[in-house]
Amino acid sequence: MKIVCRCEDITEEDIIKAIEEYGCSTLAELKQLLRLGMGHCQGRTCLILAAKILARKTGKSLEEIMPSFRPPIIPVEIGLIGEKKDER
């Protein structure tokens, strides 16, 4: 068993199954179906690995598969970002 996404416990087998059985051909679809890259690290380690598996299985180039990232860049505390100056 090879773990690809450590935050969400997703293995290489899970990804291959999603590609072969569910016809996933993009990282976005793998995220939707498996929660790949949706954990605490936001896919920093796994998305590139998953992209390589996708490239190998679909014959697409890595450039075509590159992930999109959603802000914030690092996790931020609700209380920190939602603080209003006058309420300090």
């Binding site: 949706m38 954990g39 936001q42 914030p72 609700i78 209380g79 970002i81 939602g82 603080e83 209003k84």
Partner: peptide, 22 residues
């Protein structure tokens, strides 16, 4: 992000201590 975080803190104060991921 700022507005939602502020309102979440008002509605459910314990949530102030958790992290927004995305």
């Amino acid at each position: 992000l700022k507005h939602m975080a502020y309102m979440l803190g008002k509605y459910a104060p314990p949530l102030k201590h958790i992290n927004i991921l995305r």
